[in-house]
């Protein structure tokens, strides 16, 4: 009786897994039938999944029609993203912590920050283009801007949410102000800081794609905008899916790093 029950629980799970697999297969099949077999939609607007896969594979070594291979575009995007992101995080997180901990810093920087906060980074693209031209700098500054704000915001509120009782405990053990900051406030703010880094990654990625769409000569965003002007939707789809996959990989890396650094579980 026991094993029977156990099996039904397992069977249920497997049943839904099979349904999930079927669902994806049906989706691909319908897509394939609609495009390659019955040709319900013109090929320039939606290519068959086979064609997308072919383009994906050939793009690994072919430079046509946009002047670079897929890995090159990818590296170009990543380079820009990383330079802006690292700079934004390195400046944003300490600044946020300082704002949360030292009242003076808070009072001076907060109003400036409140003014900058509601500006979507995408709106700054034209400014960057006018000031820096179509260059790596323009995009790096843009990404810096879209990283630094969520980093400050989350580090700030992370520090602000430090439990008073924890501070009292460390005070009774004779911790100095700086010791309290490094042994209590920062560790307890870590989950929030990480959440900020995550949000920053998302928004800077989005800003980068927008910047590459508008003004660029390389990168995945550039690839999809070329696809659009040549009416090569297979190219667009390859670009979009590559962006999606990179996002998944980055999220996975974040999960690993977060698990490594944020010990003792997330605070409520």
């Amino acid at each position: 009786m026991n094993t029977e029950k156990l099996n039904t629980a397992k069977k249920q799970k497997r049943k839904y897994q099979v349904i999930s697999l079927l669902s994806v297969c049906v989706f691909l099949l319908v897509w394939y039938l609609a495009t390659a077999v019955f040709e319900l939609v013109p090929a320039y607007s939606l290519p068959s999944p086979v064609k997308v896969l072919e383009t994906f594979i050939t793009k690994f070594h072919s430079k046509a029609p946009d002047g670079a291979t897929l890995p090159k575009h990818f590296i170009s995007s990543l380079q820009v993203a990383m330079s802006g992101y690292v700079l934004g995080a390195v400046i944003g997180v300490p600044l946020g912590i300082a704002m949360g901990w030292f009242k003076v810093v808070d009072k001076i920087i907060r109003p400036v920050f409140d003014l900058l906060k509601p500006i979507p980074p995408i709106a700054l693209i034209p400014v960057m283009i006018v000031v820096f031209g179509i260059s790596l700098q323009a995009k790096a500054v843009l990404i810096f801007f879209s990283t630094v704000i969520p980093c400050i915001l989350n580090s700030y509120s992370g520090i602000r949410q430090t439990k008073q009782i924890h501070l009292w405990v460390s005070q009774t053990f004779g911790a100095s102000n700086m010791q309290m900051l490094f042994t209590v406030a920062i560790p307890s703010a870590l989950p929030m800081i990480f959440a900020g880094l995550r949000v920053a990654m998302g928004s800077s990625w989005m800003a980068l794609v927008a910047a590459e769409l508008l003004a660029s000569t390389s990168g995945l965003g550039y690839l999809i905008s070329i696809g659009r002007s040549l009416l090569r939707s297979d190219l667009i789809l390859v670009g979009i899916f590559s962006l999606g996959m990179i996002n998944i990989v980055i999220t996975a890396i974040f999960n690993v790093v977060e698990k490594r650094f944020v010990r003792g579980g997330k605070a409520e």
Binding site: S23, V24, G202, W205, M206, V209, I224, I236, L243
Partner: peptide
């Protein structure tokens, strides 16, 4: 969930701006 989640997971990681050309 079984039917929609895998399809949704396909769409979820794509930055919304990337949909513009398509």
């Amino acid at each position: 969930e079984a039917v929609c989640k895998p399809l949704f997971e396909l769409v979820r990681p794509i930055p919304s701006v990337a949909w513009i050309p398509l």
